[in-house]
Amino acid sequence: MTELPHPNITEINKPFWDGLKNGELLFQECQNGHRWLPASDFCPHCLSSNFKFTKSSGQGKLISWVVYNTAHHPAFQNKVPYNVAIIKLDEGPQLISNILCPNEKLTPDMRLRLTIEQEGETYLAKFFPQLHDNHT
């Protein structure tokens, strides 16, 4: 089986990838309260380098998605048709991921919750639909 592409782990983004290995999805937050992903060593809003990695609740919503019917990499040949989505975490930052449900069940703004999957040596942040809203 062909291996998945590997993330390029650097000194800057290592806490993010270590977080997933430890079961936590981390985003960055600077002293001025700006929050962001992907990891960078300066706040993209105020350029502060005084930041911390903060644990996300893992709750979010679906902004948009696509469905691949063909693979652009051998590791995805047995996954098609698969989705790739933009997820907005409740804390603000947005990220690219996969939604673990049949593609035809995807709906705009659907509520999502985090699950962490191990593929090879990499731990990935993926999302399930939340079947029940908090108030139901």
Binding site: P38, Y82, V84
Partner: peptide, 15 residues
């Protein structure tokens, strides 16, 4: 591949 997000299958300009 579109950066590290290619681990989620995020490839190509068209996507």
């Amino acid at each position: 591949p579109r950066g590290d997000d290619s681990i989620y299958g995020w490839f190509s300009t068209a996507a």
